Simulated scan of single mutants.
Amino acid sequence: MELKQLEYFIVVCEQGSFNRAAECLYTSQPNVSKVILSLERELGRPLFERSPRGLRITPYGRTVREYARVVLRHTAIIRSMADYGWGKKFSLATYPSNMIAHLLADFYTHWQERYVVEHYEGTVEEVSGLVARGQAELGIVYVAQRQLSSFRHILSHKKLVFQPLDVKEACIYVGPHHPYYVRDSIDFSQLSSQRFIGGVHDYFAVEHHLERVSLGAISTRDLNYAMHSNSDHVIISALLHTDLCSLGLNFMHQPYSHYDIKTLRINGCEPFLTIGCIRQEGEPHSEAADWFVEQFRQLL
């Protein structure tokens, strides 16, 4: 059995026909049919019922589909862990952050002759999953202090450890088109009248913790979200060119504040978000990871 057979099989399942699958795979319909038929012969059972009305996956085919997806997902993980032709690889996963993007540029300047960098962005769950699977050596996340105990418990099952670096309060990021751009702070009571752009839905996201801050001064149900995106570029563009604002951590290192975006302090908001790094338990740290953590700590 070849991976190509499983890849073709999954695409046919998704497209529902050999013709559409062939278009997605940039090949011919007879070639797709040939690959699927060879897989069926090897397995000894049909994966699809063929009729003039089209393809219909068999119950056996549905079972094979689930296992094929697991195999292809794990294959992608193994491929992502491969070393490049020269230099060592430093891989990390982080929440979306323009400051981290610039720190990675500094990393390249410092280590360009010794390391190739591989960077992923995602939610807290996605970052911890990447570190647990070995796709990332280091993860950078933030978690509410009240969640630290349960968060560490979740990480322990994945054989991961969390190293706190600092505690920050939440803030509002605004661009030049926001009416509060000329201000330095905002009250909790004024948040409900703002229009927000937010990241992907994440249990550990800032929005889920605000209702516990300052004795429940605001509920997340009162926040008006006009847009969601997991792209840092989209969020920055929205802040620069619209009246949308976003929730974030209240720190912006000056050398990295080159965008016309400013932070508004939330009056009465105490520090409650712990920012830190995730690593695999018992695994040795590379000098690159230690350098990155120390530089990030200095920025904080």
Score class of each variant (00 low, 15 high):
Ala205Met: 09
Ser51Cys: 07
Arg79Thr: 05
Asn230Val: 04
Leu264His: 04
Asn230Ile: 01
Ser38Asn: 15
His241Asn: 14
Leu3Asp: 10
Tyr108Phe: 14
Leu223Val: 07
Arg53Lys: 15
Glu121Lys: 06
Gly129Leu: 01
Ile57Phe: 09
Ala226Gln: 11
Val32Trp: 07
Tyr60Leu: 12
Val64Lys: 07
Val127Pro: 01
Ser97Ala: 06
Ser80Trp: 00
Gly276Cys: 05
Gln29Ala: 13
Ser33Asp: 09
Glu283Gly: 01
Ile266Tyr: 05
Phe292Leu: 13
Tyr115Lys: 05
Val32Glu: 08
Tyr115His: 11
Tyr181Asp: 02
Ser219Trp: 12
Asn224Phe: 03
Ile100Cys: 02
Tyr95Arg: 05
Gly199His: 08
Met99Gln: 15
Glu40Tyr: 04
Ala136Met: 09
Met1Lys: 05
Tyr60Gln: 05
Arg133Glu: 15
Ser156Tyr: 03
Glu121Asp: 09
Ala101Trp: 03
Lys89Gly: 05
Thr274Lys: 00
Ala170Val: 07
Ile10Arg: 12
Phe162Pro: 08
Leu239His: 01
Ser219Thr: 15
Ala170Ile: 03
Arg53Val: 07
Val174His: 00
Asp243Gly: 10
Ser192Glu: 12
Tyr142Val: 00
Ala238Asn: 04
Gly276Leu: 00
Ala144Val: 00
Leu240Ala: 08
Arg221Ala: 15
His110Asp: 09
Ala205Pro: 04
Arg73Gly: 13
Thr27Leu: 07
Tyr173Leu: 14
Ile235Asn: 01
Ile77His: 03
Pro255Phe: 04
Leu155Ile: 08
Ala136His: 08
Ala82Arg: 15
Arg133Ile: 13
Arg265Lys: 11
Arg114Trp: 11
Lys158Tyr: 13
Val12Ser: 02
Arg146His: 12
Ser246Trp: 05
Asp232Glu: 13
Thr94Ala: 14
Leu240Gln: 15
Thr94Leu: 02
Gly44Phe: 02
Ile172Ser: 01
Leu244Thr: 00
Gly134Leu: 05
Ser156Thr: 09
Gly139Met: 09
Phe296Thr: 04
Ala289Trp: 08
Phe204Tyr: 15
Tyr8Asp: 08
Ser193Val: 10
Leu3Lys: 07
Glu66Asn: 10
Ala170Gly: 03
Pro271Val: 02
Leu273His: 04
Val64Asn: 09
Glu14Ile: 05
Gln295His: 15
His258Trp: 12
Ile10Lys: 11
Ser257Arg: 13
Thr75Asn: 14
Val131Trp: 07
Asp232Asn: 13
Thr274Glu: 14
Asn267Phe: 00
Thr63Met: 13
Ser192Asn: 09
Gln194Val: 02
Lys158Asn: 13
Leu103Asp: 02
Ala105Ser: 15
Val71Phe: 11
Thr242Arg: 02
Arg50Gln: 13
Gly139Arg: 06
Ala21Thr: 05
Cys24Ala: 14
Leu223Lys: 01
Glu137Met: 10
Met99Gly: 12
Tyr60Arg: 12
Phe9Val: 08
Ile10Trp: 05
Glu281Gly: 03
Leu47Trp: 06
Phe162Thr: 06
